[in-house]
Nucleic acid binder design. Structure first.
Lengths: 220, 220
DNA sequence: TAGATTGTTAATCGATTAACAATC
DNA sequence: TAGATTGTTAATCGATTAACAATC
């Protein structure tokens, strides 16, 4: 009763969170296909390499609309901008980084962010030896300048790359400054209001997933 | 019928994969509690900070045995080694890294791995300017020495930190050398035999999860 | 046309939560 | 003891898969 038939949009049911991360994988795969000169793909073709069923691929995309062609499949060049639009990477995103330590500096040099339009435009630290320097073309500011720079640059997302003990304090300050998304590399859970989305990346934990499978095999 | 009552172990049903990653979070949280001098915690206390229900915490742990004390909860110092044993981090793990580029070097300097007993013992590259050097105390070898070093050091897990185009080839070679777990930082899906566990970390994809939530809020 | 493949509904599967006796 | 909390079973919820008419 909500939607009249063959109306193109379908803004019902909020998609499960898992759908969004699969969408990112579909996008990466589609970009890979285009680089290899492939013009179309199918739900089974797309799912195969990623380990998902064809039904799942179709269902995931159906949350957002009808993008395929019965009998043909999906046209890569057509689907890519659709997914970018859904994920919000159809535009550039200025990103802030807090913490210019070892890991932080490396991430500054990582070229992979640019691939989807992310650009680190400011680094914040409290170490006077680093403040004022330019690392990998990015200015290092004192953390106290956060609010000013965030406002000036229109920054909405940030990466936390500080020691675990400092992470919660930094996060609180980021939220107060109006940030809306936080990628946390500190190995600690940070508590934040519902309105702010957090993704945690704990490199030691990723490795633990591997050791579990190794010892499991050994145990039988 | 399988288990007689009050037998301490309970090696039935394989746990879902999601349980294992939560186990890592429980461990991290327990270590955090211990550092703060807390001796016991409860399933609800443990779940709260992580955003899981008390029932889920108890169920997850119950896959592996009975570790709690009715009326008391879980003793941190007691549960930590149990989880480490399950995950396999009750011992040290030598780790190989392939790719000594920008991101690779940073990961070499990252101290967080040591926290759970991971030690990068060898780096492999094909750039003659880097081979033979020692970075952050770790020897850089030619990729052709992989098999030799892996055997000598008893390495079972590796990180791939090479460009996307090279990742699949490197992965195949790692598998041939007998590796059992691979942490892949290259932004590409790699196809591997069932017997080898892969975890992929794509930093741009993590950021995409954030942009989705930001634009979603903006859209309503 | 016959073959391929979509979008979508219904059926299945699996994971989370609620509830509670047992225990400290 | 009363209060707290576990381990576990049954009930609920949600996500994945199967199936198929519609379409190219």
């Amino acid at each position: 009763m909500t939607s009249r038939k063959s109306q193109s949009a379908k803004p019902d049911e909020t998609p499960p969170k898992a759908v969004i991360s699969r969408l990112s994988l579909y996008l990466r795969e589609l970009q890979h296909l285009v680089r290899n000169g492939q013009q179309t793909t199918s739900s089974s073709g797309l799912g195969q390499r990623l380990g998902f069923s064809d039904a799942q691929v179709r269902k995931d995309l159906a949350y957002f609309g009808q993008f395929g062609h019965p009998g043909i499949g999906y046209r890569c060049e057509e689907l890519i901008p659709v997914i970018r639009g859904i994920l919000g990477t159809d535009r550039g995103w200025p990103v802030a980084m807090v913490g210019a330590g070892n890991l932080g500096r490396a991430l500054l040099g990582y070229k992979g962010f640019a691939r989807q339009g992310f650009r680190i435009v400011a680094v914040f630290d409290i170490d006077s030896a680093t403040i004022g320097r330019v690392i990998e073309g990015v200015q290092v500011y004192h953390f106290d300048d956060l609010e000013k720079v965030v406002a000036a640059e229109g920054i909405k997302i940030a990466m936390i790359v500080v020691p675990a003990t400092a992470a919660q304090g930094v996060a609180d300050r980021l939220v107060a400054a109006g940030l809306e998304g936080i990628l946390n590399f500190a190995p600690v859970t940070i508590a934040l209001p519902e309105s702010v989305n957090t993704v945690g990346v704990d490199l030691a934990i990723e490795l633990e997933q591997l050791t579990f499978s190794v010892v499991k095999r050994r145990r039988g």
